[in-house]
């Protein structure tokens, strides 16, 4: 775009002209100014509306990261003008990023805490928008040849708080239990602590690992190991049945049991945005909640919400 300089009405250029010429010059100047303004508006509008290549950033829960990547891959293949960048790090990391304004969507395997919502309110004056994107049965992993097949919530609590240290105490062989868990930035860690340990601290002997995949990997190689995490990660390991208490029936984390509530440690997997989503972000979230998006939930190993 070329901008033509507009002579100033106060400049000496028109000094030798007559009054009529000066009026004509002023008129020409005004017309040129109008053209410039129109051109600028057109350019700005064109720039604004022709902005292709919208990028949506997604950060948070490691439990959801595989699912989020599948969603992103399929969505981008169908919407080449949209880029969805997915990273993990844990629910706490994702929520911090949402509060700091460094991600558009936060994935979390636990609900946002009141204190986190207060921080969002303080910075953005919004409450955050919670979207229940999938459901998960929090699976208890052991190695495939482990003879133990079920545990109660109380037994799990005792194992993770260090009161039970030998498999023999829960019906297994006389060997030490090697306990694997997650880091405290993980939503799964928080969920497990709140719902299984009743808020008590994990035993110092619990070996914390940086992701659910790492927990699965460790348990699959450790005949004395036990771990917890999303059901979708359960490859090459055995999932224990879990019962509410000693007198209850133990259930596997299947879709049916999770949906019916029989499996006692099931949870929603969430997506959070700062404000009510609009534009490309809204379209993406609507698609995730659509039949197509929810089919991916099932394929990955979680349970659809719709």
């Amino acid at each position: 775009m070329t901008l033509t300089p507009v002579p100033s009405p106060d400049s000496g250029e028109g000094d030798s002209s007559g009054v009529g010429e000066r009026v004509q010059n002023k008129q020409k100047g005004k017309n040129k100014m109008k053209k410039i303004i129109l051109t600028l508006i057109t350019a700005i509008a064109a720039f604004g509306f022709s902005q292709k290549g919208e990028t949506i950033t997604v950060k948070g829960s490691d439990t959801i990261v595989i699912l989020a990547q599948r969603w992103a891959e399929l969505y981008m293949s169908k919407h080449p003008d949209v880029t969805v960048q997915v990273t993990g790090g844990g629910s706490g990391v994702g929520i911090s990023a949402l509060i700091n304004g460094t991600t558009d969507i936060c994935n979390a395997s636990r609900p946002m805490k009141k204190s986190e919502k207060e921080k969002l309110k303080a910075r953005f004056n919004t409450l955050g928008v919670e979207i229940k994107a999938a459901k998960d049965g929090l699976a208890i992993y052991v190695r495939e040849n482990n003879p133990v097949s079920e545990l109660s919530i109380a037994q799990l609590k005792d194992i993770y708080t260090g009161k039970t240290t030998n498999w023999k105490q829960v019906g297994g062989p006389d060997t030490k239990i090697i306990v694997y868990g997650r880091e405290n930035s993980s939503g799964t860690y928080v969920y497990f602590k709140d719902n299984v340990l009743d808020g008590e601290d994990f035993a110092p002997s619990v070996q914390t690992l940086p992701g659910t995949a790492a927990v699965v990997n460790a348990v699959s190689k450790d005949k004395n190991g036990i771990g917890y995490g999303g059901a979708a990660y359960a490859k090459g390991i055995k999932l224990l049945k879990v019962k509410k208490d000693a007198n209850s029936t133990a259930y596997e984390p299947t879709e049916e049991n999770v949906k019916s509530g029989n499996y006692p440690i099931s949870r929603y997997l969430y997506m959070y945005t700062r404000s009510r989503p609009t534009g490309a972000m809204k379209e993406y979230i609507d698609w995730i909640l659509s039949k197509e998006g929810q089919e991916i939930v099932t394929k990955v190993g979680y349970f659809p919400v719709r």
């Binding site: 309110k121 004056n125 919004t126 409450l127 404000s275 009510r276």
Partner: peptide, 12 residues
């Protein structure tokens, strides 16, 4: 009072 004004952003 906090209100999420669509498109623009949160207001209080």
């Amino acid at each position: 009072l906090y209100y999420d004004v669509p498109v623009i952003g949160g207001a209080t």
